[in-house]
Design a binder for these strands. Sequence first.
DNA 1: TAGTGGTCTAGACCACATA
DNA 2: ATGTGGTCTAGACCACTAG
Lengths: 253, 253
Amino acid sequence: MSAATDRMPTDPRSRDAVFLPLYKQIKSLLVQRLQQGEWKPGEPIPSELELAARFQVSQGTVRKAVDELAAENLLVRRQGKGTYVASHQEPRAQFRFLRLVPDQGEPVPTHSSFLACRRTKAAPDIAQQLALRSGDSVIYLRRLLGAGGAPLVLDDIWLPASRFRGLTPERLAEYRGPLYGLFESEFGTRMIRADERIRAVAAASDVAALLAVAPGSPLLLVDRVSYTYRDQPVEVRRGFCVTTDYHYRNELF
Amino acid sequence: MSAATDRMPTDPRSRDAVFLPLYKQIKSLLVQRLQQGEWKPGEPIPSELELAARFQVSQGTVRKAVDELAAENLLVRRQGKGTYVASHQEPRAQFRFLRLVPDQGEPVPTHSSFLACRRTKAAPDIAQQLALRSGDSVIYLRRLLGAGGAPLVLDDIWLPASRFRGLTPERLAEYRGPLYGLFESEFGTRMIRADERIRAVAAASDVAALLAVAPGSPLLLVDRVSYTYRDQPVEVRRGFCVTTDYHYRNELF
DNA sequence: TAGTGGTCTAGACCACATA
DNA sequence: ATGTGGTCTAGACCACTAG
């Protein structure tokens, strides 16, 4: 076969003829299957040779598609074993979204307690960020995260109710592990990436009380919007962080 | 030729026989040449075919090495033209290390004024971060960054004096453009990556005065260590940021 | 021993930029 | 028309894992 040419000729009839490489198309098909849950987090996907046969392309083309998905943390390659759907359950991925680390020493296991879990109507700004209509149902959570006895982060979280139907205070109380692990295993929603906006603010009195700091203390405010496959927003999170013994780490490339 | 085998046999004599792929070796050679300044920022490197001939490997192997260096922002590929050494001068790379953006609207050009530029001895913590001996000479800069008339960031910067010999207040005053652009074109030192530690602090009175905020106001404190090729630390920077109309943006993958 | 991903090669052709 | 990077293929062999 003569490579890409026969498959995707630049069509002279369409005026905005777009060249889409084969491996991008394969990549898109793989994401589609991930989204549909054909392969679940933690499970292996078919081998490269099998995928190549299924999609009628060479192994090299499948490889390039899988390479990119692995680089984006959607898949995890394991030499000699296979390629697996990434999961928030694996310890390896635990700290990918947790940037707050102690100034000294190793990260200490955190303890989370939920102060609120209820269904409400989305305020305009929350609705907009979740790509919902204003007034659509959302689930609101308030969570206090502590490390080594001291309060560390107060999170307000909003989730689209449609996607997280059945998320109750009881489910939250009994669940152990990261929140994103619960979301992916219980609700089939896997967080892929997130955008954050960070600023310094003075602690309001209610927040200060919960975090056991003086009102007006400087806090790190982290506004996050999380996305699942295909850039679908699925979580809005606002966290107030005490950064006296912790800091937000970041690596710039 | 029979691929990797003949070139790098897993040596049974050495007990910790390490398999180093050919393309990793090529990559290392390319970084070495970049570090030595054989090709300067903004300049093209030889074509893939020429590099393949020079290193006696196939084009595909060179390609894989270059692909990784491009992914790490050391090189920039331009289809039909060639592969270039990345540069802080290009507008494309301007915002790679500038994460502070306005809450609304497009980034406004900033104005920087230098409040200090002198040679001193490195304090222990600075020396340690720059991999120097305590008491080695460093250049200390203090810079006030403003946007749209209002002060935005106060930066304290420490640089190893040996690498930046000849950096004077006059040179700083007359230079236009990003600081990293000056470093790379005038001192042959190109910043590759940086580690940051972020926290919220209350403004001390002197800092508050310079930033035109009330003492005790919450500020974003960004501690940065920048590295050049081969993970050599070359800059320590401590920035106090006013985040009332600006925020630090971050993307998590 | 078999199966998986990882590396390397050689060659063909395409898209893009420039002269 | 030429040269560059970009895509695709087919096949060989290596490293790693597990039954």
